[in-house]
Amino acid sequence: MAVGSVRAGQKDTSGGVQPSGAASTDRPTPTVSGPPADKPPRTCHREVADRLRAQPGTWGLVGIYPHATSAHKLARCIRNAYGRCAVYGPAGSFETRTVKLLGGSRRVEARYMPPRSDDDLWAEALAALTEDRAGGDGSG
């Protein structure tokens, strides 16, 4: 058997390195490994943030986490828009909640709350002022 080749059922311990002159057909085929079967796929936070921004005020799934600590840490990260969660910025743009599932894992959900414009804030303040004067305080 050539150096670097692997029999069926044996593990390749050569690290895929072959000495010079070895036949290229003896090289094991490289494989791409993903997350272990018991772990959920990693969350692409940019995609989640974009999806939630497209539906303001609507709760949406961010991910499912096996431990309460990791779920609550992520929820805080999203609300404060720091670190890997900077895509949820500016800070305070998203509200979060965690939901306990059967088996103890946690579902993290978020919703985008668009900032109110200055025009909206002024209109609301003017309406409140007008209501106060219309109600009459006897000083008229």
Score class of each variant (00 low, 15 high):
Ala2Ser: 13
Val3Tyr: 09
Arg7Asp: 09
Lys11Pro: 02
Ser14Lys: 06
Gly15Ala: 12
Ala22Met: 03
Ala22Cys: 04
Ala23Asn: 12
Asp26Trp: 07
Thr29Val: 11
Pro30Ile: 03
Val32Arg: 09
Ser33Asn: 12
Ser33Pro: 00
Ser33Val: 11
Gly34Pro: 00
Gly34Leu: 08
Pro35Cys: 03
Pro36Val: 11
Lys39Pro: 02
Lys39Ala: 13
His45Ile: 01
Arg46Pro: 00
Glu47Leu: 12
Glu47Asn: 13
Ala49Tyr: 08
Asp50Trp: 05
Ala54Tyr: 00
Ala54Leu: 09
Pro56Lys: 02
Pro56Leu: 04
Gly57Asp: 10
Gly57Glu: 11
Trp59Asp: 09
Val62Arg: 09
Gly63Lys: 07
His67Tyr: 14
His67Ile: 14
Ala68Tyr: 03
Ser70Thr: 14
Ala71Gln: 09
His72Leu: 13
His72Ile: 01
Lys73His: 10
Arg76Met: 04
Arg76Thr: 10
Cys77Tyr: 02
Ile78Thr: 02
Tyr82Cys: 06
Gly83Leu: 01
Ala86Tyr: 03
Gly89Glu: 06
Ala91Thr: 03
Lys100Trp: 00
Leu102Thr: 06
Arg106Cys: 04
Arg107Gln: 13
Val108Ile: 05
Arg111His: 05
Tyr112Ile: 07
Pro114Trp: 07
Pro115His: 07
Asp118Asn: 07
Ala123Met: 07
Glu124Gly: 10
Ala128Asp: 15
Leu129Ser: 15
Glu131Met: 14
Arg133Lys: 15
Gly135Phe: 15
Asp137Ile: 14
Gly138Thr: 14
Gly138Met: 15
Ser139Phe: 15
Ser139Tyr: 15
Gly140Thr: 13
